[in-house]
Design a protein around this nucleic acid. Structure first.
Length: 697
DNA sequence: TTTTGAAGTCTCTCC
DNA sequence: GACTTCAAAA
């Protein structure tokens, strides 16, 4: 290697010797896995079916590279979640020792963040930028919208979330903004010129406020790679090998980044399963994986189709389900695991019965010796577990919910963070705006004029103290100024600093919470939790960036730092959050047409196909037991009970059903099937009584 | 200009 | 059911 460590040793020229890790790869991997793990230089596409040992193969590949002399810090491992990166690196560590700790791993966004802090200044991006999450971005869109005076007309102007969605999609997919509006929001076509102006203002505003949104992280990374040859080789030159997990869920912009990073050596390994692509709403396209061989000439393709996870019966059902999908890398998973029970298709009368069935069955499995942690209940969207959560709480069964956690999006949490963010970046308009609106007596108009005053004073924080609010807001303004002053003069950094700052903020903010909400307690508890998390971070900058980039996927992740997962708890998860995981027993609930697939996805064939893949992901999470449950009557659990969904999910078609065992709960035709119901709860079911008022007697 | 109450909108998935 | 938007009152 040269002294700058950049020269790549042509691996294929080196003699294959017993691995330095002391491992006999051939004995521990199957032939396909071995071929992938020990592939030399050049592009490699691993098409890895569910449960085929994908992570294992990737870990061994890292070990192989290190064995053959690639320095760990020159390997970049891009994964989809922090959890995946962590798991892979710790498994690599077990395999090859502490050297693997130096492998760089993380999500695309987190890696972008790291590179931008380091190389951004060379391209005019300040080192101390703040990261906006999705909600912040939408808020800034709203500020732009107000500043430009859009939406005053009679016809409805797009909501800020819509504005952000179109923008984000454009950045991530490269599709022209006009086309996105035409396809997805035809009723807003007339506003296209306004969209354009608004996005220009938004972009300028971000720059002036030193703010960077999620999409910018990727976009700026790509631009750094394309801006100047010197910069590009500095950045791309950091790594000799790049490995990407879950490649089917990357988008066009991420593929562009990958090309830029690999341009000097084409040592790219991507792993993915086109049958599990479930993130198109975020711009992901299975074209990335289908077209990879064309993008990287000379690609070697290895297919892993032996499944080590599930019983043949579960695999049979899953294979049948996915067989109808359109374009894909054809592969049918197989296994030599012993035969077992067929997956269950359970028909419940309604949601309460579905809930009781699932809970009863979980308790049975638990009594048979399966840990709660090895059981999961999966659903299409976070709200679908509401009924189940109540029942679990009543029966004192511990559970942990993944996905759909809105902790960081909760207004009170964002409020507290806004204080810190203003200290961090005095130009953070989104956070200033948020703080100002908290003060009684200050509304949009006053907030805007305060912002203008601040902007005019070059965001000098002293200018905020000089701002004269309307009389009724004087007192609140004064105490905010005082609080910010206290926070600024806080003593030097120490470990408890961020938590202490939050404590200061709460001397003012807690009163507002009590004032504003009918039930302040849970919200205050959230703030306690936020404080606890903060204690784990050395400084404010790290804390704020980490929160934006690595939001915890379960509430327990917060407490988790020390307490960890000692206690045994059932997992409730959205299918999206369950990706890459596996359990002994899996329940897929609310498999009802209209819920899963969701009505929204039935508009286009592509969306429907993605829902099918989502169902496939759900089913293939199961090792030994799989139950698909559907209630015959799913009411719109809210007002306007005029719609009720009754049909089993279309994905469980006759062919799929033929591979399952059908269980009908308490149906009128008392089949030979076991009826597992009969609750121990109250004799009178109030909800059923209420429903009785509207339905048949 | 802010606040308040009523009507209206839309339900997801995540970095 | 939660949140936004709109119109009228303080």
């Amino acid at each position: 290697m040269t002294d700058d460590g950049r020269t790549v040793i042509p691996l294929h020229e080196r003699v294959v010797s017993p691995a330095a890790s002391g491992r006999d790869f051939a004995a521990e991997l199957n032939p396909d896995q071995l071929a992938a793990a020990t592939h030399g230089d050049g592009p490699l596409l691993i098409v890895a079916g569910a449960g085929s040992g994908k992570t294992r193969t990737l870990v061994y590949r890292v070990a192989h590279l290190v064995d053959r002399g690639v320095r760990p810090e020159r390997i970049l491992l891009l994964t989809f979640t922090r959890r995946a990166a962590h798991e892979m690196l710790s498994r690599a560590e077990r395999l090859i020792g502490s050297a693997s700790r130096n492998v760089h791993g993380g999500t695309f966004h987190a890696t972008a963040h790291r590179l931008l802090r380091r190389f951004g200044p060379a391209a005019g991006l300040p080192r101390d930028f703040s990261i906006m999450d999705q909600g912040d971005s939408a808020d800034l869109m709203q500020i732009s919208r107000a500043a430009l005076g859009f939406g005053a007309g009679a016809k409805r102007f797009p909501k800020k979330e819509t504005l952000h969605h179109v923008y984000s999609r454009h950045v991530n997919t490269g599709i022209a903004m006009e086309d996105i509006v035409r396809d997805e929001y035809p009723r807003f076509i007339e506003y296209i010129p306004d969209f354009t102006r608004l996005y220009a203002d938004y972009t300028l505003r971000k720059q002036e406020r030193n703010l960077v949104d999620y999409d910018d992280l990727l976009l700026l990374w790509a631009m750094l790679l394309e801006a100047s040859p010197e910069l590009a080789s500095d950045i791309a030159g950091l790594y000799d090998h790049i490995l990407v997990d879950e490649y089917q869920d990357t988008n066009a912009l991420q593929a562009r980044i990958l090309r830029g990073m690999a341009r000097m050596h084409s040592n790219v390994t991507v792993v993915g399963d086109d049958a599990q692509s479930i993130y198109s709403f975020r711009g992901a396209t299975i074209r990335n994986i289908l077209d990879f061989p064309a993008q990287f000439p000379g690609t070697r393709v290895v297919t892993l189709d032996r499944n080590y996870r599930s019983t043949p019966q579960i695999l049979g059902t899953s294979n049948t389900l996915i067989a109808h999908a359109g374009e894909r890398f054809a592969k049918t998973l197989w296994t030599d695991r012993a035969a077992a029970e067929r997956p269950l298709l359970v028909t419940a009368r309604d949601e309460p019965q579905q809930t009781r069935y699932v809970v009863d069955r979980i308790l049975e499995l638990h009594e048979e010796g399966i840990a709660l942690r090895s059981i999961a209940v999966l659903f299409r969207a976070g709200y679908m577990s509401a009924d189940l959560e109540i029942e679990l709480a009543n029966r004192k069964i511990p559970f942990e919910k993944w996905g759909g956690i809105k902790f960081l999006e909760a207004a009170h949490v964002k409020d507290v963070l806004a204080f810190l963010r203003v200290l961090e970046n005095p130009r953070d308009e989104v956070s200033w705006y948020r703080l100002l609106l908290l003060l009684p007596g200050i509304g949009e108009a006053t907030a805007r004029s305060a912002m203008e005053a601040l902007a005019a004073a070059a965001w000098d924080s002293a200018a905020f103290g000089g701002f004269v609010p309307p009389p009724r807001a004087r007192a609140a303004h004064a105490s905010l100024v005082a609080l910010l002053g206290t926070l600024r003069s806080a003593p030097e950094a120490d470990d408890a600093r961020v938590a202490r700052e939050i404590g200061h903020v709460r001397t003012m903010y807690d009163a507002m919470v009590r004032d504003r909400y009918d039930r302040p307690e849970p919200r205050l508890a959230d703030l306690d939790q936020l404080q606890t998390i903060a204690a784990g971070f050395p400084d404010r900058t790290t804390f704020l960036s980490a929160l934006a980039l690595e939001p915890p996927s379960a509430t327990q992740d917060f407490a988790g730092a020390s307490a960890d997962s000692e206690d045994d708890a059932l997992v409730l998860s959205t299918v999206h959050s369950a990706k890459g995981k596996e359990w002994d027993a899996v329940f897929v609930i609310s498999a009802v047409d209209g819920l899963f697939p969701s009505t929204r996805a039935l508009g286009s064939d592509e969306d429907t196909e993605e829902e099918r893949r989502l169902m496939y992901v759900a089913m293939t999470r199961a090792r030994d037991h799989l139950s698909v449950v559907h209630p015959l009557n799913s009411y719109g659990s809210q007002r306007g009970a005029d719609y009720s969904l009754t049909q089993l999910s279309r994905f469980v078609d006759p062919e799929v059903r033929a591979t399952m065992q059908h269980v009908a709960l308490g149906s009128d035709d008392r089949a030979a099937e076991p009826v597992l119901v009969e609750q121990r709860g109250p004799v009178v079911d109030l909800r059923a009584l209420l429903r009785g008022r509207f339905g048949a007697v």
